[in-house]
Design a protein around this nucleic acid. Structure first.
Lengths: 137, 137
DNA sequence: AACAAATACTACTTGCAAGTATTATTTAAT
DNA sequence: ATTAAATAATACTTGCAAGTAGTATTTGTT
């Protein structure tokens, strides 16, 4: 049970930026501090900018900055923006048609866990994550 | 939050077989009933045989049969055999070094969920799964 | 106007899970 | 012995996420 690397990176990046939520952060700074491959991070930053969590400032003295208070940005929104939450919230056995009406053999048990996961994602803000140190390995 | 297709397939296959736990099941039967690609399923059956949940009978009139009561085979064991449980039980943010002593920003919250997932896997037997219908889509 | 430092875009490469194809081996029935 | 029906093994192909490379664009500084 993991997130994609793209989602991982997004959370790490935004958590890191949220430690100084009003500053402008360059891609270079983020690459150096977070140990994420340069080109991949830059592409991801463009995607996150388009998703509206941050906005980019182009040109010299450019970078990225939050568009709203980090208390109002939740893990669920970020995962949804980069991967789509559906990717993680589907049937544990991979059945497309699995539902309450047409449950797989693990449906009921898994539905309970999934609700917990959803709640975790929906109630954890980037501001909260920023209070913890972000590891590099 | 999904399992690999390999783990999905394994659970579907063994659950299906467990409906008639004492019979010999051929790969052909399983492919027809479970809608899993032929060659992939056959390779997986060999792996599951080597893992000890089932044993193969070669030659004409051959097939696969459980080696022990399906009440004694748990989801966790199957996932562990085909993928390794570690693949699913690591840090949600993908940090290799994440631990209680060196926690990531989601560690504490995720540890609770992970425990629930583990319990689900460890306490659900193939016999129990076999009581439900196994879907095809 | 020229330069430097930043982001944006497009295309290519790599790695791994999943899927496919072919051939070899085993064994019961005839 | 031969055949048929099953599993086993090996190698190849595909698809997608992740990673890399190079070029274009933007904009402040000089």
């Amino acid at each position: 049970m993991k997130l994609s690397k793209t989602a991982d990176y997004s959370l790490r990046i935004l958590s890191f930026m949220a430690k100084k939520p009003d500053e402008l952060h360059t891609a270079k700074e983020l690459v150096d501090k977070l140990n994420i491959s340069d080109k991949y991070l830059r592409r991801l930053m463009t995607k996150l900018s388009k998703s509206g969590f941050i906005k980019s400032v182009q040109g010299r003295e450019g970078g990225y900055r939050f568009t709203k208070p980090t208390e109002q940005i939740f893990v669920s929104q970020i995962i949804d923006a980069v991967d789509g939450l559906d990717k993680y919230m589907g049937c544990i056995l991979g059945f497309g048609a699995c539902s309450d009406d047409n449950p797989c053999a693990l449906h009921k048990k898994w539905a309970l866990v999934r609700t917990d996961i959803m709640n975790l994602f929906k109630t954890t803000s980037i501001a909260e994550m920023a209070q913890k140190d972000v590891q590099k390995i």
